[in-house]
């Protein structure tokens, strides 16, 4: 066949992957302290990522929208948000994000960088990410906190919609969250789930049959005081702990999306400085 034959063959193998629709989106947002609490300092939107800013008082709320309607293989989404000194920024999504079945090839990538300055607070409150069968999603969330920054995070993941009878027999999910305070790594969460998600989630020490999971992180001086109050809100399938006097973490398992949301609402309402974004309440 010779070298030319080999090249032609590999080009043929690559072709179907290139036909895969690939969404690109970049969103950069920053806030600064203003006369009414917080104001948008910078905003750049490109491709399929957009932000809406509902009128709220005392802080800036951004509702992120992925206009491509979901994430599939080869997509590249990049979010970067900075809460400047003394400002307050809450980020959420308009709807649940969906990771759809991907063709063989590179996974969809969602990369988020959050920076919180001294005296600022940032709440990262996306709605659920729903994983569909044969989805391939690679997520990276990096958070840089100044010594006097406040931060609240929730990341709810739904492993298939059980009520719809969906099976998750082959997924490729690679998720990593890194939080640094003054440059030092203080929180690292990494989950790589490759293969039959339901078989994994039925394992006793993994999900014990759950199909929904969330991690919550609260970095603020009053974290320690909040711990007993947070614990009182949690059922047996969830737990909370302190990794430092100013760092509270919680992990929640639930049978489905709705049950998880019922557990999260009182918890986030307690930890968030203001009312939750309206997209969480509907």
């Amino acid at each position: 066949m010779g070298i030319y034959g080999a090249v032609a063959q590999s080009a043929e193998q690559i072709a179907p992957i290139q036909e895969q629709p690939r969404a690109r989106g970049t969103l950069r947002l920053s806030t600064k302290a203003g006369p009414k609490g917080s104001a948008i300092d910078g905003l750049r939107q490109q491709g399929c990522l957009k932000a809406l800013f509902p009128r709220v008082t005392g802080h800036t709320e951004a509702i992120l929208i992925n206009t491509s309607g979901g994430i599939t293989g080869g997509d590249r989404l990049r979010i970067s948000a900075t809460a400047g000194a003394g400002s307050r920024l809450a980020l959420t999504t308009q709807a649940a994000e969906r990771a759809y079945a991907a063709q063989p090839g590179p996974a969809g990538r969602l990369t988020t960088d959050l920076t919180v300055a001294d005296g600022a607070s940032l709440a990262w409150l996306p709605q659920e990410t729903i994983l569909f069968d044969r989805s391939a999603l690679n997520r990276r969330l990096s958070v840089d906190l100044a010594p006097e920054a406040r931060f609240l995070m929730v990341e709810p993941i739904i492993f298939g919609r059980r009520a719809m009878g969906e099976r998750l027999s082959a997924i490729d999910f690679d998720d990593r969250v890194e939080i640094r305070r003054a440059g030092r790594l203080i929180y690292l969460d990494a989950a790589r789930l490759n293969g039959d998600a339901e078989a994994h989630l039925d394992r006793p020490a993994i999900g014990a049959g759950a199909r929904a999971m969330a991690a919550v992180v609260f970095a603020a001086p009053e974290a320690e005081a909040q711990l007993p109050l947070v614990r009182a809100l949690l059922p047996q399938s969830a737990g909370a702990s302190l990794l430092g006097p100013d760092l509270l973490v919680a992990r929640l398992l639930a049978p489905d999306s709705l049950a998880l949301r019922r557990m999260l609402l009182p918890l986030l309402t307690r930890l968030n400085a203001g009312p939750l974004p309206r997209s969480w309440m509907t």
Partner: peptide, 9 residues
């Protein structure tokens, strides 16, 4: 990677 969420809880 850690998936042992029930054990962590």
């Amino acid at each position: 990677s850690s998936l042992c969420w029930a054990s962590d809880i």
